[in-house]
Design a protein around this nucleic acid. Structure first.
Length: 488
RNA sequence: GUCCCUAUCGUCUAGCCUGGUCCAGGACACUGGCCUUUCAAGCCAGCGACACGGGUUCAAAUCCCGUUAGGGACGCCA
């Protein structure tokens, strides 16, 4: 492998960071790191209609969140800028002129309407649409006439029909007969270059060594090779990685639920878990390892271990992995990570004094490894923050609506309310003692207690729960629970 | 319709290049059990796949051909 590996990711700022693009970026990044090369961020914004600044910022922010870092490119700088295609128009113009001069390219005065009509006709005859090439040999008079009509020409590249072989690092050798392509447009009438052209010129001028991108671009590759050849430039290596699919096996799209990195951040997924999950979609090290650190990925990532077939995005496995990563965080880290979600739910304020933070740490400790996403902290810990409980009706019916319960809660209120010290150890001792004295089993006491104190059937261990709810609220909530229990 | 790609448990995958060690291994999910104050975790067990059909070979998940199925691309989108 050459030492000067240069790879890039080129998002078009027309939406959010789609998981498919995130994974392609990840592969590029790991490939660059593995080969001690350069990872470049380029912005493909030649579609002026759809590109927005807001979308660009969002995509960059998502990359930052994931921890995917660029060595060069938009917002970073480098020797091959500018890195935004809309700012590289002069460069495209220069290359367009080269192609015009060498007669590989020509002006086409066909209107959109004419072309649409041809396309439709081809479709009606169930034939593939191939541009006729009728503007190839326009006389100067023709051109003058069109010009006077006010027609703005696009620029097309001549395609000679020979067979092109793409030597793909993932897919192997693939043959294309370019006769099926027709002369394709490289510059729009408004002067903006088309994707295949701009992208090729950029890859040439930015010295991209490897083009690692999604499968769907495989059929674009012959066009780009034609451009490279017309420009007499050496070809980069190509690697087309398989698509990330939805549950039905088609390209992952909005219909499958959350598809943007940002949504997963909001749902409480950790960037490390996302990276780990994404990399395993199409790549594996061996038949054992599932969890990798970034360093391990950089160390081990090679293109030859990327599979050829598409991978279905599996929410369940992501959730499991996320849980594994949360479990690995130490308490301090986890408490910090959880705070934005508590704030979002309105359970804590913007300002968190040190005592409050310590208190949150205790809660997080009690919740333990139940968290599969950071956002789940709200479900597990809500009862420790709010004044008024919401009661789960099923839990109330199952655990509180029992004859023995009101009296028991009354007695527990007395015992717990006077506990000294009011700590987990002593609370457990008291409850166990009460169990022995009354002959009530642990579960007959504990379940009603949990529902009384949290309103829920599930949650952290009961003694931690009692402690975290605190003496005052324990008394209040038991009173309330007694009322509920009696109201049969 | 045309071109291209792909095909191992429900899902992610190992194995395929360099046929035998694979009546196919791991992970998620699922089911059952243990543990237990719930849930989660943990532990144990279980379910579950080489798309199909032909070759080649002593031997094929692995090589070849075909079929089928899925996907992608056929833009003055990227």
């Amino acid at each position: 492998m050459p030492t000067d590996v240069r790879v890039r990711i080129a998002p078009s700022p027309t939406g959010y960071l789609h998981l498919g693009l995130a994974r392609t970026a990840l592969f590029n990044w790991l490939f660059a790191k593995h080969h001690k090369g350069t990872f470049i961020l380029r912005v493909d914004d030649t579609d002026v209609e759809r590109s927005t600044e807001e979308s660009l910022e969002n995509i960059i922010e998502s990359f930052r969140w994931l921890g995917i870092e660029f060595d060069e490119g938009y917002g970073i700088g480098g020797n091959y800028g500018p890195y935004k295609q809309s700012e590289r128009l002069d460069i495209y113009k220069e290359y367009t002129q080269k192609l015009l001069d060498s007669e590989f390219a020509y002006y086409c005065y066909c209107t959109k309407e004419e072309l649409d009509a041809e396309r439709e006709q081809a479709k009606a005859q169930k034939k593939p649409f191939i541009y006729s090439g009728k503007c190839r040999n326009l006389t100067p008079d023709d051109k003058k006439k069109f010009h006077e009509e006010g027609r703005k020409p696009s620029i097309r590249l001549k395609v000679n029909g020979k067979t092109i072989v793409v030597n793909d690092l993932v897919k192997g050798d693939t043959e294309f007969r370019t006769g099926l392509l027709g002369d394709f447009i490289i510059v729009r009438p408004n002067g903006m270059p088309m994707y295949n052209f701009a992208s090729s010129v950029d890859d040439i001028t930015m010295k991209t060594s490897h083009i690692i991108r999604a499968d769907e671009h495989l059929s674009n590759t012959p066009k780009q090779i034609i451009i490279y050849e017309a420009l007499k430039c050496p070809l980069p290596e190509f690697a087309h990685v398989p698509l990330v699919l939805g549950s039905k096996g088609e390209k992952l799209s909005k219909r499958h639920g959350a598809t943007s990195a940002e949504e997963y951040r909001k749902q409480g997924y950790l960037p490390e878990a996302m990276i780990n999950y994404l990399v395993r979609l199409g790549w594996s090290l061996d038949d054992q390892e599932e969890i990798f650190t970034i360093d391990e990925l950089i160390e081990n990532f090679t293109i030859d271990r990327v599979g050829k077939s598409g991978s279905v995005f599996d929410q369940q496995k992501l959730l499991w992995l996320n849980g594994e990563y949360i479990a690995k965080m130490d308490l301090d880290e986890r408490a910090k990570a959880v705070i934005p979600f508590l704030q979002e739910a309105g359970l804590v304020g913007d300002d968190i004094p040190p005592e409050k933070f310590e208190w949150i740490k205790e809660i997080v400790k009690a919740v333990g490894d139940r968290l599969k996403t950071l956002a789940q902290i709200v479900d597990y810990a809500e009862a420790f923050f709010v004044d008024e409980l919401e009661y789960d009706e099923k839990a109330v019916n199952k655990r509180l609506k029992k004859d023995y319960v009101p009296e028991m809660l009354e007695q527990l209120k007395d015992i717990l309310g006077n506990a000294d010290p009011f700590n987990e150890e002593n609370l457990e001792k008291l409850v166990r003692y009460y169990s022995e004295e009354t002959g009530l089993s642990g579960s007959k006491i504990i379940h009603p207690l949990r529902v009384s104190l949290t309103g829920k059937a599930v949650g952290p261990g009961i003694f931690e729960t009692i402690y975290l709810v605190g003496r005052e609220r324990v008394i209040e909530r038991l009173d309330k629970a007694i009322e509920i229990a009696k109201a049969q």
